[in-house]
Design a protein around this nucleic acid. Structure first.
Ligand SMILES: [Mn+2]
Ligand SMILES: [Mn+2]
Ligand SMILES: [Mn+2]
Ligand SMILES: [Mn+2]
Lengths: 154, 154
DNA sequence: TGAATTATGTATCAGAAGCTACATTTATTT
DNA sequence: AAATAAATGTAGCTTCTGATACATAATTCA
């Protein structure tokens, strides 16, 4: 009748349910997988708009990585249908890439605006938003939007 | 006097300053590096408290990965001074690990509570918080806390 | 106690994302 | 047009984080 190690495991099962926790973490890992794609297409869209085209060096500067990393990642983005490129040429978004870029930009701006609206200083809001944005679900984003459209001090 | 490609690059430099953007993204990458450590020590602390000890299988179940991944990651956590283990034994937090676990738990709960307080449904709040928590700076966390201590509907 | 089950460990692979060093191509300047 | 500078590409290395397949140790149960 001794309390064995494996008995203990069974109890905890009912207590909290590790299922939920595992699902939450799996979801977070999935979001990480798309995170770089989102930041890249956002940067490509920005550079294309502000200076006519997106070149590897400009991307590297803006993203804070070497041109080698940009090169390989762009190849992956092309493989996944977000961009088109040719050797020694600029990078262009596909329709799919443009769509993701636009969604990402809008969400990014909403997160920054929301943080600002509750009193987070601009620099901090921009810094935190860069990571937070990728983990904000459509539901939560809608809550942010609703609060932003409700101009009342907190 | 033709507008060359490299002329364009110089202009955009002044426009937005890619420095900030690069620094934001670098910070996010740094946060990702500590993210797994945070989730692991949090899970180890939880299992230790709720069932006496943290075993590899329980961690694997809770984290939604295989026991192989847990094994390797725990080895890294040990290398970095967060846990101690011996073959076929449970995993124990070091002082450093306990401290990180406690901070992570507190921050995690604050993020969930904040999202709940602005109207995000519980399930969604828990899901989003799992990713958001790692990118919330101390400043932003304080803003969250202040709003939580201010019991007024938004 | 011995067999069966469960837990843990190890070998090996894969892909993502970073890097440095060096080669090649393109653009600018003289 | 040739020389120089800048951009792009490629080879090869590292770490992290996931996986499967198989081996060994520990625990449970008949
Ligand atoms: Mn962004
Ligand atoms: Mn981002
Ligand atoms: Mn957590
Ligand atoms: Mn987390």
């Amino acid at each position: 009748m001794a309390t064995t190690k494996r008995n203990l495991a069974d109890k905890a099962h009912t207590r909290d349910g590790p299922r939920h926790q595992a699902e939450n973490l799996s979801q977070t890992r999935r979001e990480h997988a798309t995170e770089i794609a989102e930041d890249y297409v956002e940067a490509i869209a920005y550079l294309s708009a502000s200076m006519g085209e997106a070149r590897v060096v400009d991307l590297a500067r803006r993203l804070g990585v070497t041109h080698v990393t940009v090169n390989r990642t762009v190849a992956r983005l092309q493989r996944d249908g977000y961009v088109t490129t040719q050797p020694y040429r600029a990078i262009f978004l596909t329709e799919r890439g443009r769509k993701l870029a636009e969604e990402s930009r809008e969400r990014h701006e909403t997160v920054v605006a929301f943080l600002r609206s509750i009193g987070v200083p601009e620099r901090v809001a921009e810094l935190d938003a860069e990571g937070i944005e990728h983990h904000v679900s459509p539901e939560t984003l809608n809550v942010f939007r609703r609060i932003l459209s409700h101009p009342q001090k907190i």
